[in-house]
């Protein structure tokens, strides 16, 4: 008998005895309506303005640098300014309509993850610039996937992650984020999906917050529109 059959058999046997009514009433009396539960969670915002406000407020708490720019031209200028101030010499990104337009030309020599440059080359980059699937106003999160945002490593290996996003990508809450994923990818979801909420952090030493535990020390969102 395989391990699978053995475990499933034990589960069937165990569940043959229905749960004790007292425990059921004490502990299992909620309703599993996740859509309805959106109202119980922190609010995301009805309008785009409200969402932006929430996202901006949370970004501040989470120490995410939010750069609001009116258009692509301004976004390009702000990336150029960052490159100057931080002295980026090695920049990694990936091909996508938005990144192609903004990142190309930032540096004569760019590392594109689409070319599969390998871990060591990516590790030497000072910054990873990627697009995102969506922004979540409710939690201040950035939704990325391995398929749509340059792979698994681009947004976590370089010490600075810059996210390029447009205003219409601001979704109210996590629930809307999952809806968006289903709509975009249907049955073939990417093998990697992540909600990034702030830069990498730890409080493992005396509960003192330190940014950049293993992932990026800095997280910047350039929001266009």
């Amino acid at each position: 008998m395989s391990g699978k059959q053995a475990i499933l058999g034990r589960i069937r046997e165990a569940l043959a005895h229905p749960s004790h009514p007292e425990v059921r009433t004490l502990a299992g009396n909620g309703e599993r309506d996740v859509e309805k539960a959106r109202a119980f969670m922190p609010p995301g915002g009805e309008t785009v303005e409200e969402r932006l406000q929430n996202f901006a407020r949370l970004s501040e708490v989470l120490k995410v640098e939010l750069v609001l720019v009116p258009d692509l031209e301004a976004a390009k200028e702000s990336l150029n300014a960052m490159r100057e101030v931080e002295g980026w010499t090695r920049i990694a990104s990936h091909h996508h309509d938005l990144s192609d337009r903004l990142v190309t030309g930032l540096q004569p020599d760019l590392l594109w993850t689409d070319d599969q440059p390998g871990i060591d080359a990516l590790e030497r980059c000072e910054v990873g610039i990627s697009v995102c699937e969506a922004l979540i106003a409710q939690t201040g999160s950035i939704l990325v996937t391995g398929k749509g945002c340059g792979g698994r490593a681009l947004s976590v290996l370089p010490p600075h992650h810059v996210v390029l996003a447009t205003r219409d990508q601001l979704l109210p809450d996590l629930y809307a984020g999952y809806e968006h994923l289903r709509k975009t990818y249907g049955d073939s979801l990417p093998s990697f999906i992540s909600f990034i909420t702030g830069a990498s952090r730890t409080g493992d030493i005396e509960r003192i917050l330190v940014l950049g535990a293993h992932g990026p020390k800095r997280l910047t969102v350039v929001l266009i529109g």
Binding site: S191, F192, S194, F195, T197
Partner: peptide, 24 residues
């Protein structure tokens, strides 16, 4: 547990690297 809105990384993994993906 920790009094955070959201923990910094909530990641889902559904397989090894899939066709059309650059790493994993």
């Amino acid at each position: 547990g920790a009094g955070q809105w959201m923990t910094a990384y909530n990641s889902m993994i559904g397989g090894p690297r899939q066709p059309g993906e650059v790493d994993g």
